[in-house]
Design a protein around this nucleic acid. Sequence first.
DNA 1: AATCGATACAACCGCAGATTG
DNA 2: ACAATCTGCGGTTGTATCGAT
Length: 399
Amino acid sequence: MGRHSCCYKQKLRKGLWSPEEDEKLQNYITKHGHGCWSSVPKLAGLQRCGKSCRLRWINYLRPDLKRGAFSQQEENMIIELHAVLGNRWSQIAAQLPGRTDNEIKNLWNSCLKKKLRQRGIDPNTHKPLSEVENDKDMPPSTDKGNQKASVASNELSLVDQPAKAMPSERDPLEVSTSSNQELFLDRFGATCHDNRCRPSDMVGSYFSFQHLNYGTTNMGLSANPNSSLCFIPPSTSSDLNNSPISSSMLHSIFPTHVKLQSNNNPSISSDAVQNWECNNTVKSNASMQLQSSTNFLDNTWGVAESMKVNINKDAQVPLQAEQEDLKWSEYLNTPFILGNTPQNQIQTSQTIYSEVKPETGFITDKSCTSWYHQPPAFQLSDIYSKDMQRFSVTFGQTL
DNA sequence: AATCGATACAACCGCAGATTG
DNA sequence: ACAATCTGCGGTTGTATCGAT
């Protein structure tokens, strides 16, 4: 397996980025997009490796980043997500719009781990420290304290292990990653018969429904000994309509590659944006993910329609020529009004926003149009605050 | 004012999976 | 089929800042 060529190049700058470098990178990506990261530094006139440029953009320069301290709700979400996902920072970050995996990882390592310990909770297992101490006395084969090993083995255990008891029959403190993911697949794995559909693909979906569960059952945080992370699907789609599902949750339900197209303005599809950015690379697993996700929604939940999201089942169809021809400048200069009413604008923008990967989100929200050149038609922070309001209502309590 | 430790944050490193030729 | 390359991720390290002494 070859290493990234830039790693061997000499005379490349390392360390902190200067404002001039930031400006060069920002200007370049604003005008041209990043395309192939390995070529960005050369084209942008930077003495950096492409990897470094990518990291700088994702973690610092991206316009959709939410700077500033984490809110209590965000911290709670991170703890909650970590209980299920472990150190999968990118997946956790995907649930927190405007936050990067690096940011969350730092917060966890510097702050949240400490907080949990102070409250008598082991940050690795999310179990009470006393219980973890007892586990240390157990033989290594039963020690689940090793977070990495535990997470890594989860996906295997999902397949190999027999169905577990329902959460209500379990110790409510048992909120480890494996138990929740196993439960999810035990109950809903039938929607994903194809063995190409890996358990990890379902994690995002699991999460969203976990949030729904909080909304419908008023569950507490996993750190709360009285709570459990059981997943009880709503019996009807109307239940789901009443659930506090948000655009960021949709992002989890629908794979990144699924084409979500606005009813109001089909000419501007997020697919075009993505293909423009990815040089028309078609993800090999897109159709599989699409199928698994839509089947999941249609067959199990029947919610696709209720979410007012048009799922184009021809996501694999090549783009229209005019879409392929879209360039940065066109995006930057094209008013991004996606509907006739403010409500529609928000709805559509949220839909598209939810579809775009975190590191590419700048294209669709503030940026395409208004990032530097004009005020946005809507404030992204509105979306965030809207989501966070929902979360705060949903989660209901803090640590 | 100088020093030192703690903390937070930014960036790097190495690896694995995906993609490409 | 294979190797080279690219991308993304998570762990780790480096560094700036702040408060205590």
